[in-house]
Computed example of a mutant assay.
Amino acid sequence: MMTPDELAILLDEANHDPWESAQTAVALIDGQPHPRVGWLTTHLRATKYEYWTLIAAATGSAAPPDDAGLTRLMTWEVQAARSLGTDALDVTVEHAGRTFTVAGLLRMNARHTAWHAGQIAALAPTERRA
């Protein structure tokens, strides 16, 4: 099983890695973004907020800030994961009709972030060459 610090590193990489992350994908957007980019970033923010609200309720840990946008929430969640006790990782939560441990939900959070980061990057304008 991964430790809270290892889960925090996983989330930090999915959120902030300079080559392959949500932050890097969003930074590729220059000018008017594809309409789907707005939906994807809003969706990522909403799901991260939902995951962490569930985790906070189940473990008694800090809830995510209500007013945080995606960028701030991605930074917040790395520290929040690092702050979890090892015992909190085995607590179960229900999400979308499935039962997860907190550790499992955080791993899904990282996969989900990477999935949508790839979609955002694919929607970024590319230089066109003749």
Rank of each mutant, 00 (worst) to 15 (best):
M1P: 06
T3G: 03
T3F: 02
P4A: 11
D5T: 07
D5L: 06
E6H: 00
E6G: 00
L7I: 01
A8H: 01
I9G: 05
L11F: 01
D12R: 02
D12A: 08
E13K: 02
H16D: 12
H16W: 07
D17F: 00
D17K: 04
P18E: 15
W19E: 14
E20S: 10
E20M: 10
E20C: 11
S21Q: 01
S21W: 01
T24A: 15
V26K: 09
L28E: 12
D30F: 09
G31Y: 02
H34G: 14
P35L: 06
P35I: 03
V37E: 02
W39C: 00
T42A: 12
T42G: 11
T42Q: 07
T42K: 02
H43C: 04
R45C: 11
A46S: 15
T47M: 05
K48I: 14
Y49E: 07
Y49N: 06
E50P: 04
Y51F: 04
Y51E: 04
W52P: 02
T53L: 07
T53S: 08
A56Y: 06
A56F: 09
A58L: 03
A58I: 02
G60D: 11
S61N: 07
A62V: 10
A62I: 05
A62F: 09
P64S: 09
L70G: 03
M74E: 12
T75N: 05
W76L: 11
E77Y: 03
Q79W: 11
Q79V: 15
L84H: 00
L84D: 01
L84N: 01
L89I: 01
D90L: 05
V93D: 04
V93F: 02
E94P: 10
A96K: 13
G97V: 14
R98I: 15
T99F: 07
F100Y: 14
T101D: 03
V102C: 05
V102Y: 03
V102I: 06
V102L: 04
G104F: 11
L105H: 04
L106R: 03
N109S: 10
N109K: 03
A110N: 12
A110C: 12
R111G: 07
H112K: 08
H112G: 05
H112L: 03
T113I: 12
T113M: 15
A114L: 14
H116N: 10
H116K: 06
H116S: 10
I120L: 15
A121F: 05
L123T: 05
L123A: 12
A124M: 14
P125W: 04
P125Q: 08
T126M: 09
T126Y: 11
R128Q: 14
R128D: 14
R129M: 13
